[in-house]
């Protein structure tokens, strides 16, 4: 038996090594390079290539400014605004998605109409599986000011049309609506699978005690829902910090900066203003936020290691 054990532990290295090496090369080295760039005044059109260290690590004549990018971004209002906008987006949309998701989950959990409930569960997959870029295209179609169907119904009920994507506030509302369309189903399915974990005997016994569904929700189902809700909170927070595709296609961050969420903002600084050094510093700050979130995620949800 000891021989078997020994072969196990030496074996592990060869099993894991290929994946580890590749992830190191494509994941960690770029991160270190971003950290390195973030200490420089790196403006892409202005720097010159000086040669490469070890063949892959390019060296440029960008002046080292150490922490000054970080100091600048601390006082940079547009960065704070973009981060604030992301959190505003989160605070507005997350409660809507969780509450609507919970209602849908309860309706799916409720007995009766079994066939229709199966159809609903398949229908719920459609928004979350739609390619993000295509969700943006659909948003442009639905919210078009001239022939968009949303404006048609708005006109029918309120007697006038609105410039959904041209008005700063309405553009923010429009991307929020598309986000709710895409991610409420995710909340619904997560919470539905939590509801199915409630032991059937406990739930049926509770139903004999009370007719009120909210009593059952609070006393019986809530403890089982909590891990799902926590997972949604953390994952949606991360997803909104990542959010790029839908907004980029629907509004490009505009009008003005009305819908410029953090990832869109950093993309603009890095690839439309070409201030790679500054953008890298911002990305590193975003990475630190992400690492804190991941720690929370592991502490509260993911205990399996």
């Amino acid at each position: 038996m000891p021989t078997a054990k020994k072969s196990y532990s030496t074996g592990a290295f060869w099993f894991v090594a290929p994946a580890m090496i590749v992830l190191l090369v494509v994941g960690i080295i770029p991160l270190l390079f971003a950290l390195w760039t973030s200490f420089q005044q790196f403006i892409l059109p202005k720097v010159h290539f000086k040669g490469a260290f070890a063949g892959i690590w390019p060296i440029f004549d960008a002046p080292f400014v150490w922490l000054s990018n970080y100091r600048d971004l601390l006082f940079d209002e547009s960065f704070r605004d973009a981060l604030g906008r992301s959190f505003l987006f989160l605070i507005i949309n997350l409660p809507i998605q969780v509450i609507l998701g919970l209602i849908i989950a309860l309706l799916l959990h409720r007995p009766g109409h079994e066939w229709l409930k199966n159809v609903t569960r398949i229908a719920l997959v459609i928004p979350m599986a739609t390619t993000f870029a295509v969700v943006g295209l659909i948003g442009r179609l639905l919210f078009n000011g001239d022939f968009g169907i949303n404006n048609y119904f708005w006109n029918l009920f309120f007697g006038h049309k609105m410039e959904w994507l041209a008005d700063p506030n309405l553009a923010f509302v429009s991307i929020s609506i598309m986000d709710c369309w895409q991610w409420t189903p995710f909340c619904a399915l997560v919470l539905f699978s939590s509801l199915t974990m409630v032991p059937i005997e406990i739930e049926e016994a509770a139903k004999l005690e009370t007719d009120r569904w909210w009593h059952i929700l609070r006393k019986v189902q809530l403890p089982f829902l909590l891990p799902g809700i926590t997972a949604i909170l953390i994952l949606r927070t991360a997803d909104i910090l990542k959010m790029f595709d839908v907004v980029f296609i629907m509004t490009r961050g505009g009008p003005g900066a009305a819908t410029e969420l953090i990832s869109i903002y950093i993309q603009r600084i890095g690839f439309r203003s070409f201030e790679q050094g500054m953008a890298s510093a911002q990305a590193i700050v975003l990475l630190i936020i992400t690492i804190i979130l991941s720690r929370l995620y592991i502490r509260f949800i993911y205990r399996e290691v």
Binding site: F33, P58, A279, L286
Partner: peptide
């Protein structure tokens, strides 16, 4: 931890250095 962080990470963080490299 690396996997979980990866799930949470905004692609812009890797896209910047990857572009230059």
């Amino acid at each position: 931890f690396w996997f979980i962080t990866n799930r949470m990470l905004s692609p812009i963080v890797l896209a910047l250095p990857f572009f230059i490299l």
